[in-house]
Design a protein around this nucleic acid. Structure first.
Lengths: 230, 230
DNA sequence: TCAAAAGTGTTTCTGCTACACCCATGC
DNA sequence: GCATGGGTGTAGCAGAAACACTTTTGA
């Protein structure tokens, strides 16, 4: 590849990309956004939105920009999950990728996501993913682990849920994120006791009809200060 | 910088480095290894060992190799702490860096560490660091946070302590890592109750004379499986 | 002789777990 | 009318926090 392009350097440099695992909750399941590959390598496989770092931006900015360009989506929250630098991870050459995960508002899944070129963008429930290109299966594994850690530290759970939500909504989300069920009664008590959610007046609350809640940011930050040991 | 070197590419590429925050415990304090910068930029400041990624290796391998080349030290444990891609982080041009933290055996601090060139490598206690070059202060902040997380998940504490150690040794280490004191009695009880350490016969154990312990790896892995929620 | 360091024990409180019962809604 | 879903309550246990006493060593 040497002596071919316009960008020349004294020493070897790898190509650098940012890939983005985007999560969206639809009230029933946690979903991620994938883009179908129309060309080799990995034709017919699915990949996370992403692309090459540009000169003027940080990696996080690149991840945000590529997501916007490829799908029109803007992330509410974004966090790095690690660098992927395996020597053979891309058959076309040496490419290292910074992985991010993002969280978007609940309505986002229903908006049409148009690819910028021929690419097709589709939401998949995390429990039923298609074959992924490159090392994106590993990227996904790391993303969900970091999402779980995030659920312990910051209110991304509430950004996935939106303005108001019911406790059973929350529990469905937690079940998908952590991959196992929770005791319904203890689950509710935990959040009510912590004061993290406030009941909203309008309707519900009768037996059989779930009450609606709103996230209490103030209580959250107070709690976080008490609990955070890192 | 275009059209100058032998490595030419169709699109712009950043330089990529790996930097390594190396921790060593000397029985009293937690220390990190720094290398003095003899030239501008940041002449007279200190920086973490690190260097450029080479074509045949992953970023973790690069961090390991640079540490070995610059100081002769081999890490017992190494973990990524994030990518640093600020546009202006290096005044000489666009350089993105993958940060790692490492843990080395307790004796390492007393071995002479010879720099590969004119550079001088010196251990500093984490509570008293000199001015750091580039964005290395931020790298350090992230490193110690990840070290704390690591202390909850994996036995790096015991790799820092070595083969045998006393409970007060451990407590001094924990105090430096977490930046605050612990109740002496509860601290000891926690580790003894969990069965993470086994008393070693030779000497000590009388009042006023600390007993020596050894890390119980089996108990650790059993505990970890029980506790790990991620 | 006395201060500093380290071994051992008790009490309390809080949070998590495991369960049981009641009441609306919709088929 | 009955299954489903959702609101509320209690008992037990384990781990963390708070706190006191004793013994050895060394200055």
């Amino acid at each position: 590849m040497a002596k071919e392009g316009n960008f020349c350097y004294e020493y070897w440099r790898p190509a650098v990309t940012a890939d983005n695992v985007v999560f969206c909750f639809d009230g029933e399941h946690l979903n991620v956004l994938l883009i179908e590959r129309k060309n080799d390598p990995y034709r017919g496989h699915w990949a996370f939105p992403g692309g090459f770092l540009e000169e003027h931006e940080t990696l996080e900015e690149a991840a945000r920009r590529e997501l916007k360009e490829e799908t029109g989506i803007e992330a509410l929250y974004m966090e790095e999950i690690g660098v992927f630098s395996g020597v053979d991870r891309d058959p076309r050459g040496r490419v290292i990728s910074a992985g991010f995960y993002s969280v978007v508002a609940p309505g986002t899944k229903d908006l049409a996501v148009a690819g910028d070129d021929a690419a097709r963008a589709v939401w998949f429930p995390v429990c039923d993913l298609p074959p992924l290109a490159f090392d994106h299966a590993e990227i996904f594994r790391k993303a969900i682990i970091h999402l779980r850690i995030g659920f312990h530290l910051i209110p991304i759970a509430f950004q996935l849920l939106g303005e108001t939500f019911t406790i059973p909504d929350m529990q469905r989300l937690y079940t998908d994120v952590f991959g196992h069920g929770f005791d319904r009664r203890n689950f509710q008590k935990r959040f009510l006791n912590l004061g993290l959610v406030d009941a909203v007046e309008e309707g519900g609350g009768k037996r059989g009809v779930p009450k609606h809640y709103r996230f209490n940011e103030e209580a959250y930050y107070a709690l976080r200060k008490r609990v955070m040991k890192f």
